[in-house]
Design a protein around this nucleic acid. Structure first.
Length: 425
RNA sequence: GCCCCGAUAGUGUAGUGGCCUAUCAUCCGAGUCUGUCGAGCUCGGGACACGGGUUCAAAUCCCGUUCGGGGCGCCA
């Protein structure tokens, strides 16, 4: 019966059977050591030549990263971790080819490009696995939070007929005799769910953006964590967002101590209240920092770096100018809106807003953004027969993972990233 | 879309016109070593992205192609 390598230390003195990858084999004249790795950790197996000549010779020539099962007694030893497995039986399940296109335990760091080309090998590295164990905690914790608070999980269509928000480029797909697109966001659908009376919904699903960006923080396919709630304001959903982020950080701190240690990252400590800085205040801060910008300009990357780069915390930028936000964002006054972003330093993690709920304002907004209300009739109709006030936001899961683990490149927090030039693996 | 940069063994690199039948490490292979743990030691193997040009001479300079990285725009 197979046990996980992590469990071996609780079975000292008894027989164990473990399976995994032979990540390193050290051969001396009459004894050899084999480091076996599985999802839970590594342990060393040891074999004396004397009395095991045949097994010894077989293992001696085994290529690294071959998959095998070994069994034998777990014993205390002078191994670094204090115990090892004395090999009695061994079954080679699959022999790896040589040389490896990417060393799993080599002392040499490979380029991100080489690593992504051979991602299945790269993902075998404990520090890469750790990222995705943490990401699993984050998404589970957020899902758990929503379910506890009475949100309904939804699954909106990813093949859509038209641009959801305008602006962003979409990936066209052939839909039988018509043209359709991959969804850039569940925005319109989650709002329709408010009209449908679901009250509070969330969705964790891919979003697709056909922008030709080439940066360490953009993907053309990412995982969007969306929420929308009825009878709520921008302030209300900012409270929820702060709660959600703190819950996720708390879960990571308590469930992923080992992964944080492997990654050399401190437990995220979010014992502070997220600051709420209005857009206009932010512009003033930029001006004070000597940057040329005026109220009404978008916050460019250099501005966010100059101002936000000094804030090593989560904080909101609120009340954005209406002209800089999409048509569905509720006005605050003639100039400003109830749209907000959640930032960490210079990086945007979330954007959200209280939404327009009046069909008349919605139609005006669509027109003023140069969009045709007729082509959004499936959406506008939901506003005409009783749409409650509502608000919501969307977090990028990969970006949140970057921030909580202090990882500078979003490709590191994505299993198989889709960027400007990569569709395989 | 605009701008900048890069491409040398499986992997990571050295190299700035002749000293390059190309450096080092890792890796792979052979051998050696009763307990290693980044094992050690000896020997061996393996590369100048592609096409064109300049030159007596090109990994090195120029042009193009392909692929990649970064910055900006835009966004999660």
């Amino acid at each position: 019966m197979r046990v996980l390598i992590r469990e071996v230390k609780d079975r000292i003195g008894s027989e164990v059977e473990i399976s995994g990858w032979a990540q390193n084999i050290r051969v001396l004249s009459s004894v050899l050591f084999i480091e076996l790795r599985d999802v839970s950790g590594t342990v060393q197996g040891v074999l004396l030549r004397k009395g095991n000549e045949e097994l010894f010779d077989e293992l001696k020539g085994l290529p690294r990263e071959s998959v095998l099962t070994i069994s034998g007694e777990a014993v205390k030893s002078q191994a670094r971790i204090g115990y090892e497995v004395q090999i009695k039986h061994l079954e080679i399940l699959n022999r790896a080819e040589t040389p490896l296109p990417l060393g799993v335990v080599d002392k040499i760091e490979s380029d991100i490009e080489t690593r992504l080309e051979n991602r299945f090998l790269d993902l075998r590295r404990p520090e890469v696995l750790a990222i995705f164990k943490v990401q699993s905690t984050i998404s589970n914790s957020i899902r758990d939070y929503f379910v506890r608070k009475g949100f309904i999980e939804i699954h909106s269509p990813k093949i859509v007929a038209a641009a959801t928000e305008g602006g962003t480029d979409l990936f066209p797909v052939k839909y039988f005799e018509r043209n359709a697109y991959l969804s850039q966001s569940p925005q319109l659908y989650k709002e329709i769910m408010m009209s449908a009376g679901f009250d509070k919904v969330f969705e964790i699903a891919p979003a697709f953006r056909a922008e030709e960006h080439n940066t360490p923080r953009h993907l053309n396919e990412f995982t969007s964590i969306d929420m929308e709630m009825s009878f709520a304001s921008d302030e209300d959903v900012m409270d929820v967002l702060e709660d959600v982020i703190k819950a996720a950080a708390q879960s990571v701190s308590s469930l992923n101590e080992r992964e944080l240690e492997i990654l050399g990252v401190e437990k995220p400590s979010l014992g502070y209240r997220f600051r709420r800085i209005t857009y206009s205040e932010y512009v003033k801060m930029a001006i004070d920092a000597g940057i040329e910008i005026k109220d009404g300009d978008d916050l460019s990357t250099p501005v966010l770096k100059a101002v936000g780069g000094k804030i090593n915390q989560f904080y909101f930028i609120t009340r954005w100018p209406r002209v800089l936000k999409p048509f569905y964002v509720q006005p605050y006054d003639d100039t400003y809106s109830k749209g907000f972003d959640l930032q960490y330093g210079e990086l945007e993690i979330t954007s959200g807003a209280q939404r327009v709920h009046s069909p008349h304002i919605l139609i005006d907004n669509l027109r003023s953004k140069g969009l045709s209300p007729e082509s959004f009739s499936f959406y506008v109709n939901a506003f005409r027969y009783g749409m409650p006030p509502h608000a919501g936001w969307a977090i990028g899961l990969e970006r949140l993972t970057m921030v909580l683990l202090n990882i500078p490149n979003i490709r590191e927090t994505t299993l198989f990233p889709r960027d400007r030039t990569r569709v395989t693996p």
